[in-house]
Simulated assay, not measured.
Amino acid sequence: MKKSTPDSLSDASPDPLPEPERVTIDEAGRLVVPARFRKALGIRGRQQLVVGLEGDTIRLRTPSAALARLQAIARQKRRGSESVVDEFILERRAEAARD
């Protein structure tokens, strides 16, 4: 049976995500992110990451991925087409008027 090849780049499937891998944390609390993970996320050189806890999981994200996640959360929390900033200012003005 002949193995099929994609006719164009759009038919090609994306690179699969790296399989989980064990890493060791050294005495100073450092760990090395394996090269194939760094490559998959486009992390090069001395780049900063955002670290967070989600349940019992430590998450490492690139700053752009962390920002996209925060923006998605903010969109979910947004009520209607109101401006969150305008709503905040109105709340603060009402609070100041009560004082």
Rank of each mutant, 00 (worst) to 15 (best):
E82C: 11
L41T: 00
P20R: 04
P18A: 11
R22G: 09
D56Y: 07
A66W: 07
V85A: 15
G52F: 02
D11S: 09
P16R: 14
G45M: 08
R92Y: 10
S64Y: 00
D11T: 11
R79F: 03
T24K: 07
P14N: 12
F37C: 01
P14F: 01
R69H: 09
G42L: 05
D11W: 12
D7N: 11
V50W: 01
T24F: 08
L41D: 05
E91K: 15
V23Y: 01
L53C: 01
A35H: 04
V23T: 10
T5F: 14
S13R: 15
G45L: 13
S81Q: 05
P20I: 03
S4I: 10
S10A: 13
E21G: 08
A28D: 04
I58T: 02
G29N: 04
Q47F: 01
E91G: 04
R75N: 14
D11G: 14
G55A: 07
T5I: 13
Q48M: 05
A40S: 11
Q47P: 00
A74Y: 02
I73S: 11
L90F: 05
R79M: 12
K77R: 13
T24M: 10
P18L: 08
E21K: 08
R79E: 08
A94G: 09
R36Y: 10
L67I: 08
S81L: 12
V84Q: 15
A40N: 07
D11I: 07
A68N: 04
P34R: 01
